[in-house]
């Protein structure tokens, strides 16, 4: 069933069809080997990484580095600009990532401060414009603000990625109405990014109409990351199917599913 669904309902972003609607992050995993197992269990085909100074000995067993781990597992790499506070830093980080990882895809993350880790909308808009002009495919991590989301799309973002809740909180989707509103007005893919705590949060994101879900901490810091990764794989598929199947309307009163006609007189 999984194979059938992904073949007939690919996630198309920046013109590329992906077989999985689960985008994984890599932050928080205690080891590269454990991370690799979780990524494989998740079925992801796109995974985000941070760019930092080269530190010798940071590889996993056999000396494999993170980039090679992803390449070996046929997972497309989505470099991010985590840790950038200004458009200038984010653009430079994206350029370094493009050179190092040979991709023009970038998850644009410009945060306001370390306490909230919330996106700085002003710098985000500025960086999106610059990066689009430099030929990047921008996956813009943004607040759950329908106005900013539309503005990012108009500037040429390949995908808009509103947060469900602040990074790492696991609080789920705090404003489902805003997410629905963003989805209803978007003509580029909407990816629910950040705040996911457990599988039902991801299913809800998909039911609200999101095209994909991005998460890291919910898997990497789970007690059993591989099992949780598999849970998210199924949750995203389930939510997507439900979203496309057309749910029943909510009603105030009960509606019998069995006909009264033909009932025996007892």
């Amino acid at each position: 069933m999984t194979e059938t669904l992904t073949a007939t309902d690919p996630f198309i972003v920046a013109g590329v069809p992906l077989g999985s609607r689960l985008i994984m992050g890599t932050g928080g995993a205690p080891s590269l080997d454990g991370l690799g197992a979780a990524l494989v269990a998740s079925g992801t085909e796109l995974t985000t990484v941070a760019m930092r100074r080269y530190a010798p000995g940071s590889g996993g067993s056999g000396g494999t580095n993170l980039f090679e781990l992803l390449v070996e597992n046929n997972i497309r790499v989505l470099p991010n600009t985590a840790g950038c506070f200004t458009a200038r830093e984010a653009v430079m980080t994206a350029e370094l990532a493009r050179e190092a990882l040979e991709t023009d895809w970038v998850k644009l993350e410009v945060i306001a401060d370390e306490h909230t880790l919330l996106p700085d909308a002003v710098e985000l808009v500025e960086a999106t414009e610059q990066l689009v002009n430099r030929g990047f495919k921008v996956f813009a991590y943004t607040n759950d603000d329908p106005v900013v989301a539309l503005r990012l799309e108009q500037l040429g973002a390949a995908a808009v990625m509103p947060l469900g809740a602040p990074i790492g909180t696991g609080l789920g989707i705090l404003n489902p109405h805003n997410i629905e509103l963003i989805v209803s007005r978007a003509s580029v893919p909407v990816v629910l990014d950040a705040g996911i705590g457990t599988a039902s949060d991801a299913a809800l994101a998909m039911e609200l109409g999101c095209d994909a879900v991005l998460l890291a901490t919910a898997v990497t810091r789970a007690q059993d990351p591989v099992r949780m990764a598999e849970a998210f794989k199924h949750a995203v598929i389930g939510g997507r199917l439900a979203s496309r199947a057309g749910r029943i309307p909510k009603r105030a009163h009960a509606l019998a599913s069995s006909a009264m006609e033909g009932r025996p007189d007892l």
């Binding site: 992050g25 932050g27 990484v49 941070a50 930092r52 100074r53 580095n65 993170l66 370094l96 993350e109």
Partner: peptide, 10 residues
């Protein structure tokens, strides 16, 4: 000189 690479994060 800065030499950078992909690491876990985000």
């Amino acid at each position: 000189v800065e030499v950078v690479t992909a690491v876990q994060g985000g």
